[in-house]
Amino acid sequence: MPTSTPPATDALFSDQWLTLREPADHRARDAQLTHAADQWLVRRAATNPAQDTRPFETRRTVVDLGCGSGSNLRYLAPRLQGAQQWRLIDHDAGLLAQARQRCESLASADGQPIHLETDQLSLTTAWQHGLEGADLVTASALFDLLTADALEAMADACQRSGCAVLFALSIDGLIRFHDASGSALYDDDDRFMLAALQAHQHRDKGGGPAVGGEAPRRLRESFHRRGYHIREAASPWRLGPESQPLAEALMAGWRQALHEHLPQQRDRVDQWHGRHLDDLRRGRVTLTVGHRDLLATPADATHPGARA
């Protein structure tokens, strides 16, 4: 399971969970990388004057991989200038319907309408056939679930498209509880449980071991090898009393994952979970879950499809 999703399923995420995490996701994201992506799109449009005469549907095409119920779109679209064509890709038809329903009325940063299309596709199919014409490919909290080979295939597809990428909230493996003074709490039980969680993230979900918390590093290296310019920023969840429902759901997910990974240690897992859950409920600790955001722009931004 990814550390920031409950492990009941690895590929199916309920709208309830996605809604619960959305405020924390939006608070955590790095605003400077979003602004830099917007400025890159503006410059790209300026170097392609033909875009000015095209219908708005073909301008600033943004592909959202694993879009879920549209949280990434709700964050980004109002922060990007210009008319936008969004292609929402997910394997879950119900989540795609939720995304369309909740996002149809969005407008861009300068008040232009957002045009949506939805494609029910697997991720493998998406980067084989779904990135055509993309200016920007984006995703949120996705890549820890994938294999290293899948990341490479995705990076190849982005390179062929000549697009930029903005990937938010990739888990980096950091989990820490903090006391009221802000000092990290990290005893032997924490080390044991968090190492087990990291191992659980890397298990084979079909097709090979998942990259888990290595996702930010692997994404950075993949796009660097393809000549992209890289910018990164930390985007940790910082969960305090205002985020208690999310923290409790997260802890419940970790408990289930640890039961799966450590079946002989259920009592120890339950004691660790109960101790930290009680401290969270009493406001004695806060919880930090590490993520990173990545913006990668091709070296040649003027010719879509050119080798980056």
Rank of each mutant, 00 (worst) to 15 (best):
V42H: 06
V63C: 01
F56E: 13
L41F: 03
D52V: 09
P78W: 02
A45S: 05
A46D: 13
R74Y: 08
T53S: 09
L41A: 02
G70H: 10
C67W: 01
G68M: 05
A46G: 03
F56W: 15
T61Q: 11
F56I: 15
L65W: 12
A37V: 06
S69V: 10
R74E: 05
T53N: 00
P78M: 03
G66D: 06
P78D: 04
V63R: 00
L76V: 03
A46F: 10
V42S: 06
D38K: 02
V42G: 07
T58L: 15
E57H: 12
A36C: 06
C67I: 04
S71D: 08
G66Y: 08
R44Q: 03
G68P: 07
A45N: 04
P78G: 00
D38Q: 06
G68I: 00
T53W: 14
L41I: 01
R60S: 12
T53D: 08
R44G: 01
V62D: 02
G70W: 05
P55M: 12
N48R: 15
S71R: 02
R54N: 14
A77Y: 08
N72L: 15
T61G: 08
R43I: 08
V62K: 07
T58Q: 15
P55N: 11
L76G: 04
T47F: 08
L73K: 05
R54P: 09
R59N: 09
R43W: 06
Q39N: 06
A77C: 02
R59L: 11
V42W: 05
A45P: 03
C67T: 12
N48P: 02
F56S: 15
N48D: 13
A36K: 07
P49N: 04
P55L: 09
Y75Q: 10
T47M: 05
A37C: 06
S69Y: 12
L73F: 09
Q51S: 14
R54C: 13
R60Q: 08
N72A: 13
G68S: 07
T53Y: 14
R59G: 11
E57M: 11
A46H: 06
L76F: 09
R54Q: 15
L73P: 09
A50S: 15
A50L: 15
N48E: 13
N48S: 10
C67M: 03
W40K: 03
R59Q: 15
R59F: 05
W40T: 12
W40I: 13
R43P: 02
V62E: 04
Q39L: 05
N72Q: 14
T61A: 12
R60K: 08
P49R: 05
W40H: 14
R60F: 04
G68C: 07
V62P: 01
N72K: 10
T53E: 06
L65T: 06
T47H: 07
Q39D: 03
A37M: 04
L65A: 13
A77I: 10
V42N: 11
N48I: 09
R44A: 10
P49F: 00
S71F: 04
P49T: 05
A46Q: 09
P55W: 07
S71E: 10
D52P: 01
R60C: 07
C67S: 08
F56V: 14
Y75P: 00
S69C: 13
S69Q: 15
